[in-house]
Amino acid sequence: MMSRPAFRIASQLQRRTFSSTSARLSSPYHYPEGPRSNLPFNPLTKFFWLRYWGFMAVGFFAPFGIAVWQLKKNL
Score class of each variant (00 low, 15 high):
Trp69Asp: 09
Phe64Lys: 04
Leu71Asn: 11
Leu25Arg: 14
Thr21Ser: 06
Asn74Thr: 14
Phe64Glu: 01
Lys46Gly: 00
Leu25Pro: 03
Arg8Leu: 07
Ile66Val: 15
Arg51Gly: 11
Pro63Ile: 07
Ser26Asp: 15
Lys46Arg: 12
Ser26Thr: 14
Ala57Val: 12
Pro63Trp: 10
Met56Val: 15
Ser20Glu: 12
Ser20Gly: 02
Gln70Gly: 02
Arg24Glu: 10
Phe47His: 15
Tyr29Asn: 15
Leu25Asn: 08
Val68Cys: 02
Tyr29Glu: 10
Arg4Ser: 00
Leu50Lys: 13
Pro32Ser: 10
Gln14Lys: 15
Ser26Asn: 13
Ser3Asp: 13
Ser20His: 08
Gly54Leu: 14
Tyr52Trp: 09
Phe64Asp: 01
Leu13Asp: 03
Leu50His: 09
Pro63Tyr: 09
Arg36Phe: 12
Ala23Pro: 05
Gln12Lys: 08
Pro40Asn: 10
Leu71Met: 13
Pro63Val: 08
Ile66Trp: 10
Gly54Tyr: 11
Ser20Phe: 14
Val68Met: 05
Phe48Leu: 01
Asn42His: 11
Pro40Leu: 03
Pro32Ile: 08
Gly54Lys: 09
His30Thr: 13
Arg24Met: 04
Ile66Pro: 00
Phe60Lys: 02
Asn74Trp: 03
Arg4Lys: 05
Pro5His: 04
Thr45Tyr: 01
Ser20Thr: 13
Met1Arg: 05
Arg4Glu: 00
His30Cys: 03
Lys73Ser: 05
Pro40His: 04
Arg36Met: 08
Arg16Leu: 11
Tyr52Glu: 05
Ser37His: 05
Ala23Glu: 07
Gln70Phe: 10
Ser19Trp: 04
Arg8Cys: 01
Phe18Trp: 12
Phe55Val: 02
Trp49Pro: 00
Pro43Cys: 07
Val58Ala: 13
Gly34Glu: 11
Met2Pro: 01
Trp53Leu: 14
Arg51Leu: 10
Gln14Cys: 05
Gln14Glu: 10
